[in-house]
């Protein structure tokens, strides 16, 4: 009883200025400020990374620093980051190539074929994979995956090649288990959930009318998938793959633990390689020389540039994909 009367009193009371006029403006100002601060933050980050790295970048030259292949922090203090750039690009792109088919298959299966209970289990597990910290993937890589790959794959291939195809050995490299391929496998298992989750959502967003239309025309399940669902969902699938690529570019700990951290080009399939985030994480802590310290921050700056270029390209391609698509 009493409650009802206070409620009506509240309704009758004249609302204060803050709710009528000022509210919108304050809200707009706050939102604008926060949005602008995001831009300032990104630009500031790039600027300060450049500033921190400028000592070495100036010494080696912008392109000299990028394309140099010697990283000698002890004797000659010569810094070139090309091996790290190549390592980052190879591992990320290869991990993407390995993970997309698996992720897409999981997404299609759970969205279209699986009974609900099974889809629930798979989806839950995929989401769980995204929540596992990367250092755990690294430990799993060191103690389980690397020894397993060495025994089951690297050594047999290596021994086979050294007997039957000696020319191949040069490209295979040291089969110790800690190297480029192990890094790629760990990385691809880490990024599967990103592509899988976004693809799943995109597939389930395909309007029922579209599918039913296709079925009504006599299309088989495969034909519906190929001609209706995948073209319709490709924007979302692509966005998921790009998110995964971004994640792969920046992945540090797991990679640093299994990739063997060698910086001598050319890289071999099984032999050690290294990536930009890994060298930052590994060497920053104990970088005593100013030039070395500055070189590591310089690596951060170039990583920032690469991530920027990749993201810009991705959103450009995404827009292209969406234009031909029916907007709703």
């Amino acid at each position: 009883m009493q409650q009802a009367s206070t409620q009506s009193a509240l309704i009758k009371r004249k609302t204060s200025a803050i709710y009528r006029v000022l509210g919108d403006r304050i809200f707009l100002a706050v939102v604008l400020l926060l949005a602008l601060s995001l831009i300032a933050l990104t630009l500031g980050l790039g600027y300060f990374l450049y500033l921190g790295g400028s000592q070495t970048i100036n010494k080696e030259g912008f392109f000299g620093f990028l394309t140099g292949t010697t990283w000698d922090p002890a004797l000659r203090l010569e810094f070139g980051i090309w091996p790290y750039v190549v390592g980052t690009l190879i591992t990320s792109l290869a991990a993407l190539v390995l993970s997309v088919p698996v992720a897409l298959a999981a997404a299609i299966f759970t969205a279209e074929y699986a009974p609900r209970w099974l889809a629930g289990i798979i989806n839950y597990l995929v989401d769980l994979m995204a929540a596992v910290p990367s250092v755990v993937y690294g430990i799993w890589g060191i103690f389980v995956l690397a020894p397993f790959l060495r025994e089951a794959f690297y050594l047999p291939v290596f021994l086979w090649a050294s007997e039957n195809a000696p020319w191949l050995v040069r490209y295979l490299g040291n089969p110790a288990g800690y190297g480029l391929f192990t890094g790629i496998v760990v990385l691809s298992s880490m990024i599967i959930p990103f592509t899988a989750a976004l693809s799943r959502d995109a597939i389930s967003l395909v309007p029922v009318a579209q599918r039913e239309g296709a079925y009504a025309l006599g299309a088989t399940r495969w034909e519906v998938m190929q001609m209706v669902i995948l073209p319709y969902a490709r924007g979302g699938i692509f966005a998921g793959a790009m998110l995964a690529l971004g994640r792969a570019l920046g992945e540090t700990m797991a990679i640093a633990m299994v990739i063997g951290n060698g910086n001598i080009l050319p890289y071999t399939l099984f032999g050690p390689a290294s990536t930009m985030p890994a060298v930052i994480a590994l060497e920053l802590k104990e970088a005593v020389e100013d030039l070395h310290y500055s070189a590591i921050i310089g690596v951060g700056f170039f990583l920032f540039l690469i991530a920027f270029i990749v993201n810009a390209t991705a959103s450009y391609l995404l827009n292209k994909l969406k234009v031909s698509e029916q907007r709703f």
Binding site: L75, R76, N174, G179, P272, L282
Partner: peptide
Amino acid sequence: VGRGNSVNWLAPNKVGGRGNEGVAG
């Protein structure tokens, strides 16, 4: 090569491990 907290390792057949536990592993 020289001396330092990080150096440019030259052996062709090499693997880098992170930390004491990484090398030991």
